[in-house]
Design a protein around this nucleic acid. Structure first.
Length: 394
DNA sequence: TCTGGGGTCCTAGGACCC
DNA sequence: TCTGGGGTCCTAGGACCC
């Protein structure tokens, strides 16, 4: 989906179309004051000039999404709000409306599944779709089906998306970036040299800032450079697994299937404080936040029907270093008090000499509530109950 | 006044088991 | 004088993605 969170806000405030708008940062709806001030008219008639600007923004946080006009100024996802404010002070800031974003996410995915049922979820605004067995999925290299999906999503949501069609997920993901926003791009196997190799290695899904920096140090800049490297040399520098993977992706090879179903591995809640907190001096405040996080995780587990047996905490110090501790229980739980107790034990094992900026609680090793795995009580088998197998007999 | 929140997967050492 | 070889699970940290 194109600039998803921002586009969702533009549905509500169409008068902001064409303007630099960023979503992010706030814990509360900073446009509430504006809405109160103009409560006598519809949202779409609030003058654009009345909205809060990035230059007036105070506080912590990062940009979730920037509209394309804002991107012209170099503002983008994951950028700190303060830095963004220097680049584009006149941008309008709005908070994310998660409920509305989730609703529209479900809506666009439902539209796709109606047309092409083999869909892999890739977060709130992205999916992989397998065109292979969709009737007409091969027409014009997939362009006809891609157009139908685009049109159907727009009719259902008034939102635009960009689609890349290619022989595998790796190339499709890259192709989807070629023609944004509201674009379609078809990449064939033969296009590797001309369209993929000139790209920076960072464009590969799976090469992040660290791998990029190391590749640049080794004078590997483009995907073509990467493809030209001896696989053995890549293995020597990045290890067996990453080295081989890098070689394969540089040659456009990816055999991962489109996975339509998956079970969650963990659920967590975390929060960055408005100001850094001290474990001793701000004990009461931290304690309340800690308990609240445990209750929210427990609530998430219950709502989604899961229990977990590994309880963990995460904290981030004022110098941005992160520490985690976890503890695995004998039994599964979704109980806030139990989670709070174990998380409290974890907290005792971590240094608390620095101020904290973030606290998080995680539950892992999940099982479906009520499943045999979740309810089985681990009882050691008594010897006389043990039926010997072939090798033990006699 | 830098740097969110919710995830997955990988690595690596150590405990423990057969 | 020589001290295995598998395997799984747990824990901590980190890279990466949306």
């Amino acid at each position: 989906m194109d600039a998803f969170f921002a586009s969702v806000e533009l549905l509500r405030y169409p008068q902001l179309k064409g303007l630099p708008v960023v979503i992010g940062g706030g814990r509360r709806r900073v446009d509430e004051m504006v809405r109160e001030r103009f409560s006598d008219r519809p949202l779409s008639e609030i003058p654009a000039g009345a909205f809060p600007l990035l230059k007036d923004y105070v506080g912590r946080g990062v940009i979730t999404t920037a509209t394309y006009p804002a991107r012209q100024f170099g503002v983008g996802s994951a950028m700190g709000m303060m830095k963004a404010a220097r680049l584009c002070p006149q941008a309008i800031v709005l908070p994310a409306d998660f409920d509305e974003v989730r609703r529209l996410s479900r809506a666009f995915k439902a539209v796709i599944r109606d047309i092409a049922p083999v869909v892999e979820d890739r977060g709130i605004d992205e999916v992989y779709i397998d065109f292979t067995d969709v009737p007409g999925g091969q027409r014009e290299g997939g362009r006809v089906l891609a157009r139908l999906i685009q049109k159907s999503i727009f009719e259902a949501t008034r939102l635009t998306c960009s689609i890349g069609v290619a022989p595998n997920k790796l190339l499709a993901k890259m192709a989807s970036e070629f023609n944004k926003p509201n674009g379609i791009s078809i990449v064939h196997e033969d296009d590797l040299q001309s369209r993929i190799w000139p790209l920076a290695v960072r464009k590969i899904n799976g090469i992040g800032p660290k791998a990029e920096a190391k590749l640049l140090r080794l004078h590997v800049h483009t995907i073509g450079d990467l493809a030209a490297q001896d696989p053995e040399w890549l293995v020597d520098n990045f290890g067996q697994s990453t080295g081989r993977w890098m070689h394969n992706v540089a040659w456009g090879r990816d055999d991962r299937p489109v996975v339509t179903e998956s079970e969650p591995v963990s659920m967590s809640r975390e929060t960055t404080f408005d100001r850094d907190l001290h474990a001793v001096r701000d004990r009461a405040e931290l304690g309340a936040i800690f308990t609240d996080l445990c209750e929210r995780v427990a609530d998430d587990l219950r709502r989604k029907g899961y229990v977990g047996k590994t309880i963990g905490i995460k904290l981030r110090y004022d110098d941005f270093r992160t520490a985690t501790r976890d503890h695995t229980l004998e039994h599964f739980t979704d109980d806030a008090k139990a989670i709070r107790r174990v998380a409290g034990l974890c907290l005792k094992r971590v240094p608390l000499d620095r101020k904290l900026r973030l606290l998080g609680v995680r539950v892992g090793k999940l099982a479906r509530a009520g499943s045999t795995e979740a309810t089985a009580v681990a009882a050691p088998l008594r010897v006389e109950e043990h039926t010997p197998d072939l090798f033990q007999a006699g």
